[in-house]
Design a protein around this nucleic acid. Sequence first.
DNA 1: TAAAATTAAATTGTGTACAACTTAATAACT
DNA 2: AGTTATTAAGTTGTACACAATTTAATTTTA
Lengths: 146, 146
Amino acid sequence: MKNETLKLENQICFKIYTAEREITKLYRELLKELNVTYPQYLVLLLLWEKHSLTVKELGQRLFLDSGTLTPMLKRMEMNGLVERKRSEQDERSVIVSVTEKGNALKEKAECIPNQLVDNIPMGKEELSTLNETLTSMLEQLQNQTK
Amino acid sequence: MKNETLKLENQICFKIYTAEREITKLYRELLKELNVTYPQYLVLLLLWEKHSLTVKELGQRLFLDSGTLTPMLKRMEMNGLVERKRSEQDERSVIVSVTEKGNALKEKAECIPNQLVDNIPMGKEELSTLNETLTSMLEQLQNQTK
DNA sequence: TAAAATTAAATTGTGTACAACTTAATAACT
DNA sequence: AGTTATTAAGTTGTACACAATTTAATTTTA
């Protein structure tokens, strides 16, 4: 038992670590045409819904801090996908909003979820079980590491 | 019907992306004492088993390429955890072996899997379901992105 | 209301990841 | 054997991710 626990094959954490990179790799292919990365795509998903959000709000939803978001949003701004401007109500906040160009990507992105499903064929039941497990796992983790 | 599946897949990908970072964060805490990162810990896990492996073999097991491994192994070498030397049989290969100091960390690391389990309390059955799901998912993904 | 505390971004520094490319060594082939 | 192809590491450049710190604005509170 003791020796087994230090074995890689037995570790779910390693599989999640690996799965994350494989999923990112898959998205990289699918997103190549849009010229955005997976994290950038996540930002766009939110902005397509809400049009504009502060850096803080983006961070809360994506669980990323300004150290990650600021340079990423600058890159997106440079590519013309978003605009950044200080809030007038609170000069500490920066409001990020999606541009015309950023919005135009939405249509191109419509097919991505479908392509994803094609690449990860799983039963509906298995999918929801996985979803539930990950959800509760995340809750636990986010309580621990907060 | 289909739309739900699509949403779910998207959510699952995001949750895996998030879970990976939370797990890494948790490991960061646990590994702080050993002064290694999670990927470095993975290398050590392999070297504690086999004592020495080539960069290629490490890459095959961890699904990482030399672009990631070479600088990481250099850092580990600088910290005295591993040694790197060219194979004499095949000068293209570099053999990575764990040092005394690297081996000494094994004892300190024994408790880590247990601490991890304490932080992610999950039923035994749920764990093995998750393990199986991730395993088959990984197979699919690694076929697609190869 | 002036000082202290808090907050939101930005900055700095370190460490992955990975695509694309280079270099050197070995293997395969003509 | 000599050329070509393949292979293993290393290198370069880009993009996260995050800890720790800094800066500026807003709240809190004494």
